[in-house]
Amino acid sequence: MKARVFVTLKPSVFDPQGQTIVEALHSMGYAGVGDVRQGKYFELEVSSTSAEQARALASEVADKLLANPVIESYRIEVE
């Protein structure tokens, strides 16, 4: 099975990279883009037999390694 983990900075944390990207977009004329938050995306190949198991495993590794709970939060998709 495949689990996808999306890690993003918490809303309270300033994202200088996202800020730079949105400024670039504005200078390119994309005034319709209000804000950009840059994050990280992980694809995990897991040997789990159920979606629940895959989600639990992905959540465990996200908590322990993929995300830093001080500054980041994450979301998981399983297929």
């Binding site: 300033f14 200088p16 830093n68 001080v70």
Partner: peptide, 17 residues
């Protein structure tokens, strides 16, 4: 030390990148 939880907080990219 921050990642290990031996000190609190975390490090972000420098504000001017």
């Amino acid at each position: 030390l921050c990642e290990a939880g031996l000190l609190p907080g975390a490090m972000l990219r420098n504000r001017d990148l």
